[in-house]
Amino acid sequence: MSHVEDNQVNELPLLAENYPLSIEQRESYQRDGHIVLRGVASDAEIASYEPIITDWVKSLNEQDKPLEQRDTYGKAFIQISNLWEKSEEIQRFVFAKRFAQIAADLMGVDGVRIYHDQALFKEPHGGHTPWHQDQNFWPLDTDKTITMWMPLVPISEEVGSMTFASESHLIGYINRLLISDESHRTLAGYIEGKGFKTVSHGAMQAGDATFHAGWTLHSAPGNPTDTMRKVMTIIYYADGSRVAEPDSKARENDLKRWFPDMKPGDVAASVLNPLLYSRE
Rank of each mutant, 00 (worst) to 15 (best):
S270M: 07
H218K: 06
A100L: 10
G108I: 00
F259I: 05
S248L: 11
P130V: 03
R251N: 08
S156R: 08
S161E: 05
A76K: 02
L187E: 02
I191S: 01
I234K: 05
I191W: 06
G39T: 02
E280G: 13
H125R: 15
M228D: 04
I146A: 07
K144T: 05
L177E: 06
E157V: 09
F164E: 05
D55N: 15
F99K: 00
L37Q: 06
A100T: 08
M262N: 00
V94A: 10
T72S: 13
K75Y: 06
L106W: 02
E252M: 15
Y49N: 03
L106P: 09
E68M: 14
M1Y: 03
T233V: 07
Q63G: 09
I23T: 14
H132S: 08
I53H: 00
G33P: 01
W131T: 04
T72W: 01
E192F: 02
M262R: 04
I46Y: 07
H128E: 15
G189A: 11
P154T: 08
P124F: 11
A209C: 13
K65C: 11
Y115I: 03
G195N: 04
Y190F: 13
V112W: 08
S2A: 11
T147H: 00
A96C: 13
F196K: 04
E89W: 02
M150I: 03
E245F: 09
L187Q: 00
Q79A: 14
H132Q: 10
L276D: 02
H128F: 13
G195I: 10
N136E: 06
H218P: 05
Q101F: 04
D181S: 15
D181M: 14
N18K: 12
S81A: 14
M107W: 09
T163M: 11
L106T: 03
S248Q: 14
G108C: 06
Y236S: 05
S168E: 01
T186M: 03
K256R: 13
S59G: 12
T54L: 12
L14G: 09
A119M: 04
S87Y: 01
R38Y: 06
N175V: 05
P66Y: 14
W149H: 00
D181F: 13
G172P: 11
L83G: 07
T72K: 07
T210W: 01
Y237M: 09
G240D: 09
I23R: 08
A47D: 05
H125S: 15
G214D: 06
M232T: 03
L187K: 06
A76V: 09
